[in-house]
Design a protein around this nucleic acid. Sequence first.
DNA 1: ATCGATGCAAAAACTTTGCATCGGT
DNA 2: ACCGATGCAAAGTTTTTGCATCGAT
Lengths: 152, 152
Amino acid sequence: MIEPLCAIFRRFLKRQGLKFTGERAKILDTVLAQEEVFEADQLLSEMRQGGHRVSKATIYRTLKHLQDAKIITELLIDSKQAHYELSFGRKPKGHLVCVETGRITEIPSPWLEPVRDRICREHGYDPVSHRFVIYGISPSESRADDPAAQDD
Amino acid sequence: MIEPLCAIFRRFLKRQGLKFTGERAKILDTVLAQEEVFEADQLLSEMRQGGHRVSKATIYRTLKHLQDAKIITELLIDSKQAHYELSFGRKPKGHLVCVETGRITEIPSPWLEPVRDRICREHGYDPVSHRFVIYGISPSESRADDPAAQDD
DNA sequence: ATCGATGCAAAAACTTTGCATCGGT
DNA sequence: ACCGATGCAAAGTTTTTGCATCGAT
């Protein structure tokens, strides 16, 4: 049986001399409800819709702790805004991003980890993590772009 | 013999009904002088040091055109700031980033392109580009972190 | 002469921070 | 009771935009 992430976060906080507050619990709940990649902003509005009042500042502060606790991971999809995903107990995934719609699809890529470790070894680095992002145009979009494509 | 990038940029601009100005020429020169990954800010200060006065706005506007012209590529190293590198006529590279020093090393990874194309095909996507970034700790840094390491 | 380009400063978008107050432990 | 956490608003960063003027074609 799996230990709930809530308990894991709680333990992490205690170890750091930090407190497990109602706000942090609510934020973690909202994070756990995310099915896909999410942003700070999105959490805020979902929480407000759910009738929970939390400040932006607390969201950002908590996201940082969740990263330290290895519960979420920051992705690098674009350089304007931070994107996160649940990562606890999961192998790092790659991401396929549609440059037209912004849609993000996870792609399993277990073979990347050995590659990363080999490259780090070659450079004398200690591996920490890695990101693999593919940009493409999703099916419906590329068809719309192509005047030669016949749809019947 | 290789056509100078300046001419390529000029042609690109003309094709788009845009103008080749002194500022754009200077910015391209400065970009071409970059040996590694660079940022908008860095270009600005290097140009000012070189006695060229350009506005931040023009730098950003020109960087956008240089990307459209495929002369530079925006990397995704962190979500705070845009990083660029010269990319004209080069295969996409991966990047090894030291999380302690911020140092960025290019890593050739020609095998990623076929992987990208296969994954795109599987999802019905048209491939556009990809990014592969490895985070690690560079040799001297990881030694400094490790109290057991003996250096003699 | 046209119409895009420039510089400046203001605005925007995202994230961080200072401070008084609140609340876990 | 202590000391970290919160909310708010202000400040910080990076990037974008409006506008009057400049300049390439």
